[in-house]
Design a protein around this nucleic acid. Structure first.
Length: 584
RNA sequence: GCGCCCGUAGCUCAGUGGACAGAGCGCUGGCCUGCGGAGCCAGAGGUCGGAGGUUCAAUUCCUCCCGGGCGUACCA
C-alpha cells in the first residue's frame, strides 16, 4: 500500500515516535473489518522499542494521527490504532492513478537495463503436447509478461528436448514397427504410440534399451540414416508444436533445442577434464561433488556426481544444459536466468549450478530453478512412457466447446457473428485451461480434474473475464470513449460511499504490490488469486450499485470506478497471458 | 538411508509472528418487469497432521515424530 494518505500516516506516526517513515509504512495493515477503519497500526514493535505498554503507545499515536491530513478518525483499540481516512480523497488517489496510468498501472521501471532469460515450456518433442508441459508453459509465459511489466528485458527461451537417448528409442521403435505413411498421417500421435510401444516391449526385452542407446550413439556420431530420421521427426513435431503455441498465445524470443549444443559438448568435456573439474569414473565422465574439490561449506558433500558422458561415449542432457547456460551468458549477459522446470529435477539443477560455480563463473548464483509441483491425473503422476497422459489438444477442445455452448445460450451475444463466437470461445476456453495452471502456488501439485477445469463458475479464468466483459458492457452502453480518461476534477469521488464501492477501490489499490510479489516469488499465483478476488469485489459492487441512469454525479463517479476496474482486470489478465474479451 | 516438497472445512487450495483462520467447488435455502444469472445473498462445515520448545503473542519460527509425494551415476 502506498498512496499519499498512507505515507502521511506513516510520516506523522514516525515523527511522533522517532522512527523512520519506512519502518512504519512496513507495518501498516488493514483492520479486520471495514467499520473499524481503513488502516491499522499494530503498536507492539514500537512499544517494545520504547519499553512501554502497547496500548499506551497506541493511545498516543491515535492522538497524533488525528492531526494528520486526510485523517478523519483515529482510535486506539487496545494495542492497535485504527485510522479512518477521508474516503473521497482516498478514492481519488486510487482511481485517479489508474485512470491516468492506464495499462501501465502496477508496472514500473525497476528492471530497466536488466535482462532476464527464462527457459520455459521446453517440451520433449516427438510426442503430443501434454498437460505436464502446460504448467511450465503457462508459468513461464506469465513470468515473462510480469517481468516485462516492471521494465526488464526478457528473453523467453524454448530449450526443446530434441536430442538424447529418447530419439534413439524412437528410431529403434520406428525401424521395428513404424511406417512412413502412418507417421505422416498421425504425426506426433503416431510418434507417441511408437514411444509407448517401445517402453512396453523394453520391459519384456531389455535388449531394446541397448538398441536405443546404439541409435543415439549413431546419431551423435553423425550417421546419415539416423540423422535423416531424426530431422524428419523433429520437423514434423515442431510443426505440431507451433500450432499448440499459437493456440495458447505463447511466443518465444529464442527457440533453440538441445541439439543446437551438440557440437559444443565434446570440447566442453575435454576442457573440464583438462582443468580437473571433471574426471573419468567407471568409464564415464563425471563432475564429483563428494570430494574436497568443493570449497563451499560442505553443501557439495554427499551430492551425487553430475554425469557428462556415458560409458558408451554419448552425452547427457546435463552436458547440453551446461553448454546452454554458457551460451546464454555469453549472448545475453543476463541479470538472471530462470529455469521453469518441474521440482523433480531439483537435484539436477543443484548439480548444474554447482558445476558452473566450480568452473569459476560467478554468475552461477544468478541461475534460478523455478521449480513447480507435478500435474497429477486421478491423483497419480502422469507417465508418458505408460501412455497415462492428457493431451493439451483435448483439454482445449473441450474447454472451447463448453464456452461455445454457453455463448449460444446467452442472448447478450446473439448478435456476434459465428467467427466472432469462435474467436471468443477459444479465447475463453484457453484461458480457463491456462488459469487452472496458475491458480495454485508453484510448489503445490495440481490435481487435474475435468469437472474442475470445465467449471467456469467461481474462481476461474472465465469468471475474471466475465467480470471484465460486464465492466466493458457498462462502458459501452454509457458511450464512454476508452481513449480519453476523464479529467480528475470532473469526478466527485465523495459520492462513492457504499461499502462495496470503497471495498472495490481498496482492492484496486493492491494490484501493484501483487505484481511485485509475483516477480519476487517467481510465481504468477498471487496475481491470479488477486484477480479472482478483485472480480468478486467488482461483482458485488455491480450487483448493488447501479451505474447507468443514476444522477449525473453518481453516474460519473461510478463510471470512473468501472473504468479503473476494467483496466486492472484487463492488465492483470494479460500479465497472466490470458485474453480479455470485451464481450463473451 | 539421505535430500527436497507437501500435510489448514467433505474436496481443491489461500493465508500469517499479532485483533474472532479465509476462498472456490460441493451441499441447503433465497435473488432476474432496471447496466450481462459464466453473477449475487444467506446457511451448514475446521483439535490449522501430532508432541515439545522459543515468544507478551505461534496455524506461522525451531526440534522431534507421523503420513503422502518426488529425487537419489550412465533417461529428460
Amino acid at each position: 500500500m502506498s498512496n499519499p494518505i498512507v505515507r502521511e500516516i506513516a510520516r506523522v506516526a514516525g515523527r511522533r515516535l522517532g522512527v523512520p517513515e519506512a519502518d512504519v509504512l512496513k507495518i501498516i495493515t488493514t483492520p479486520p473489518s471495514d467499520e473499524l477503519g481503513d488502516y491499522a497500526l499494530p503498536c507492539f514493535a514500537f512499544a517494545q522499542r520504547q519499553k512501554r505498554p502497547p496500548h499506551e503507545v497506541a493511545r498516543e499515536l491515535a492522538e497524533a494521527l488525528r492531526e494528520a491530513e486526510h485523517v478523519v478518525k483515529a482510535e486506539a483499540a487496545g494495542p492497535y490504532v485504527n485510522v479512518t481516512v477521508d474516503r473521497a480523497a482516498l478514492l481519488r488517489f486510487i482511481v485517479g492513478a489508474i485512470l491516468e496510468q492506464g495499462e501501465r498501472y502496477g508496472g514500473g521501471d525497476e528492471g530497466r537495463g536488466r535482462t532476464i532469460v527464462i527457459d520455459y515450456s521446453s517440451p520433449n518433442i516427438a510426442r503430443p503436447f501434454s498437460i505436464a508441459h502446460l504448467r511450465s508453459t503457462a508459468l513461464g509465459n506469465a513470468l515473462k509478461r510480469l517481468f516485462r511489466h516492471l521494465g526488464y528485458r526478457v528473453v523467453g527461451v524454448n530449450h526443446l528436448g530434441d536430442w538424447g537417448t529418447q530419439f534413439g528409442a524412437l528410431i529403434a521403435a520406428y525401424k521395428r514397427w513404424g511406417s512412413r505413411e502412418r507417421v505422416e498421417r498421425e504425426n506426433v500421435y503416431e510418434l507417441f504410440r511408437l514411444y509407448v510401444k517401445f517402453h512396453e516391449e523394453a520391459e519384456k526385452d531389455p535388449k531394446l534399451e541397448e538398441e536405443a542407446r546404439l541409435w543415439f550413439k549413431k546419431l551423435e556420431e553423425g550417421d546419415q540414416e539416423a540423422l535423416e530420421l531424426w530431422r524428419w521427426f523433429v520437423e514434423l513435431s515442431w510443426r505440431a508444436f507451433r500450432r499448440y503455441y499459437e493456440l495458447l498465445g505463447v511466443e518465444f524470443e529464442e527457440v533453440r533445442g538441445e541439439s543446437a549444443y551438440r557440437d559444443r559438448t565434446g570440447p566442453l568435456i575435454e576442457e573440464l577434464l583438462k582443468k580437473g573439474i571433471a574426471r573419468e569414473s567407471e568409464g564415464a565422465v563425471i563432475i564429483p561433488f563428494d570430494d574436497e574439490g568443493d570449497k563451499g561449506e560442505g553443501e557439495g558433500e554427499g551430492m551425487p556426481p553430475l554425469l557428462l558422458r556415458k560409458r558408451d561415449g554419448t552425452t547427457l542432457y546435463a552436458t547440453r544444459d551446461l553448454a546452454a547456460a554458457l551460451y546464454h551468458y555469453e549472448t545475453y549477459r543476463f541479470y538472471k536466468k530462470l529455469y521453469v522446470v518441474g521440482a523433480e529435477q531439483s537435484l539436477h539443477f543443484k548439480q548444474l549450478f554447482k558445476a558452473l560455480e566450480r568452473m569459476g563463473h560467478e554468475w552461477a548464483r544468478d541461475l534460478v530453478h523455478v521449480a513447480f509441483g507435478m500435474v497429477l491425473f486421478e491423483d497419480k503422476k502422469m507417465s508418458t512412457r505408460k501412455g497415462r497422459v492428457i493431451f493439451l489438444e483435448e483439454v482445449v477442445r473441450k474447454a472451447t466447446q463448453r464456452t461455445r455452448e454457453i455463448i449460444e445460450s446467452i442472448a447478450k451475444t446473439a448478435d456476434l457473428t459465428p467467427e466472432e463466437k469462435d474467436r471468443v470461445a477459444q479465447d475463453v476456453g484457453v484461458s480457463a485451461v491456462l488459469y487452472s495452471q496458475l491458480s495454485r502456488s508453484r510448489t503445490q501439485d495440481i490435481h487435474f480434474r475435468w469437472e474442475e477445469v470445465l467449471n467456469f463458475e467461481g474462481k476461474s479464468g472465465p469468471y475474471v473475464q466475465y467480470t471484465h466483459a460486464r465492466m466493458a458492457g457498462v462502458l459501452r452502453r454509457a458511450g464512454v470513449s476508452t481513449s480519453t480518461p476523464p479529467q480528475p476534477d470532473e469526478v466527485d469521488y465523495g459520492v462513492l460511499t457504499h461499502p462495496h464501492e470503497v471495498a472495490l477501490a481498496k482492492k484496486l489499490e493492491l494490484f501493484p504490490q501483487k505484481v511485485r510479489q509475483a516477480v519476487e516469488e517467481y510465481d504468477p499465483f498471487p496475481v491470479a488469486e488477486y484477480l479472482a478476488d478483485l472480480a468478486a469485489a467488482a461483482n458485488k459492487f455491480y450487483d448493488t450499485c447501479r451505474v447507468l441512469g443514476e444522477e449525473p454525479a453518481v453516474e460519473r463517479a461510478r463510471l470512473a470506478l468501472v473504468r479503473a476496474t476494467k483496466t486492472v482486470l484487463k492488465t492483470g489478465l494479460e500479465l497472466l497471458g490470458l485474453k480479455a474479451p470485451e464481450r463473451m
